[in-house]
Design a protein around this nucleic acid. Sequence first.
DNA 1: CTTGTAATTATTCATATGAATAAATAACCT
DNA 2: AGGTTATTTATTCATATGAATAATTACAAG
Lengths: 217, 217
Amino acid sequence: MGRPSRNDGAGAGPDLRDGILDHAELVFAEAGFAGANLREIAARAGVNQGLIRYYFGSKADLFDECFRRRGGVLAGHRHVNLDRLLEMSDAPSVEDIVYAYLKPQWDMKYSSPNGAAFVAMQARLHAEPEEHALRLRREVYDASVKRYIATLALVLPQIPKDIISVRMAFLVGAYLFMLNDLGRIGDLTEGHLTSFGKDEMLDQLVRFLSAGLRAPL
Amino acid sequence: MGRPSRNDGAGAGPDLRDGILDHAELVFAEAGFAGANLREIAARAGVNQGLIRYYFGSKADLFDECFRRRGGVLAGHRHVNLDRLLEMSDAPSVEDIVYAYLKPQWDMKYSSPNGAAFVAMQARLHAEPEEHALRLRREVYDASVKRYIATLALVLPQIPKDIISVRMAFLVGAYLFMLNDLGRIGDLTEGHLTSFGKDEMLDQLVRFLSAGLRAPL
DNA sequence: CTTGTAATTATTCATATGAATAAATAACCT
DNA sequence: AGGTTATTTATTCATATGAATAATTACAAG
């Protein structure tokens, strides 16, 4: 039915399809959906522009696939982390839960330029008001976010679930922004940022958000 | 030198220049910089496309002016609020400071469709990695943010200024996201959002962020 | 009123861009 | 080998778009 299937065999083969996704990820991150153009993606990936259409159809479809690919992995990691946490204890600390949620994307960002690009893509997607962007976000993330909300509600029985949901949204905003914006944070600290290691930054975020989640009514 | 000056007289006059800015604001909010197009802005504003060029030069210049217009007002309100707070007491509460920072934009959002559009524009701008976007943000907001950081440092002497700066960045992320994303928050609460009034939402945010700012090391 | 300048519109230009089509090449099966 | 399907490229299409230029109108001063 017209889908390539080179991967199941032995030989390497460049697998141009994945190459397209990789480069699309970079371009979308730099320019956003509207600002990206297929010719550049094709050129950077070293393929003909028509190939993008062959594999993905439209520009929008390419974007979606791009987003789903890593987004799915991310959501998966979050699920696994939460599973692990709940295995070890019935009532993990708020810090542990927040950390379990944040760490996968943190790692992704620093694992490769493409991981960082995905963070940027995601931050941009979250600023887009179009229905389509919303749908995509829901599709990829809603399930795992809701599970985290439920778990937080469990360990914070004094806080109504409504409020935990809202606070979870604050959390997402803070962490996406931070992850995508470390350069700007450097501005605000007037250069003192160097004293911060990357991991310490994540710890800071976890501490901040956990305190917020716990805040009494 | 080629700048119109209709305002100093008495007569009303539609002042097309401002109309362009108003409609540009809406279009930029919906589509982002790259996705916006001048023909649509001109059409919505009911003017010829050439007039945009006449008044603003390039699309980028139009965007900048659009952003500076309201951004300047916003930064001004924040300064005034902080002045007032410091007049009333040497050591205002963290909540008061956070509220003073957030309230102007909150009000702007609900004052008019254009106010809401500006929030969206701003959220998008904060997700753009281009140097130009960064410059604009710095130009419009840095001074007031730094003042708030200094004040927070004053009332939170137990927290090093570096850390306050970083937490302030978390704050900005959370509030921009929330303000631009109330619809999505509705998703997460599974419809229970109706029980929340708008003002209560702002209170929730203030409480969350204040707790985060205060979090012990 | 007429002349100079500011404001506004109509039109054109050049190019970028997503999509489409057709042709060519490679892989696979029998 | 021969035929069929999958992959890849070259080329074309249609249109969107920012910018530029020229033409027109409004308006103020003398």
